[in-house]
């Protein structure tokens, strides 16, 4: 079980996709870095990544680590957002719907409960973009 500070110190990056932009070479990194691996500059500006990205690769996990037993099977993916890649879970989707290149959007979700009496941990997951106005009939898979 982890302490609360270990969890809350990562909140800006896990909840809001805060990243860094190198002001010298323009490279972007998630999570933020202090020094740019591309040009070694330390002039790194804090930015927020947009919510929409595309799926680069994915895996359906059938054998989970401790703590994820009740979510199994679940989908994890590599998502490219504005030139930056992020690893995370893809939610509200059937494995058969997954397609490399598909559009995804970040949403705020529960990730896990850390131990029996531990804190509930939240973070960003990715889902198919909600068709807000255009298609009222759309219901996310997990809600059906």
């Amino acid at each position: 079980m982890s302490s609360a500070p270990r969890y809350w110190r990562e909140i800006p990056y896990r909840y809001r996709l805060e990243a860094s932009l190198c002001e010298r070479c323009g490279s972007k990194f998630y999570p933020p870095r202090i020094i740019c691996p591309n040009c070694k500059s330390r002039e790194m500006k804090r930015i927020r990544l947009p919510k929409r990205g595309t799926l680069v690769s994915y895996s359906v996990v059938y054998f989970p680590p401790k703590g994820f037993e009740l979510q199994t099977p679940y989908v994890v993916g590599l998502v490219e957002i504005d030139g930056v890649k992020v690893v995370g879970q893809i939610t509200d989707v059937l494995p058969s719907e997954l397609k490399i290149g598909m559009e995804l959007e970040a949403c705020f979700r529960k990730v896990r409960v850390n131990g029996k009496s531990g804190i509930i941990q939240y973070g960003i997951k990715f889902r198919k973009p909600e068709k807000r106005d255009a298609d009222e009939s759309y219901v996310p898979i997990g809600v059906r």
Partner: peptide, 17 residues
């Protein structure tokens, strides 16, 4: 903090590749 936290296993990280 940015892979394992989300339930990404060693096998899953390799599966992506």
């Amino acid at each position: 903090e940015y892979e394992k936290f989300y339930g990404v296993t060693f096998q899953a990280a390799n599966a992506l590749l």
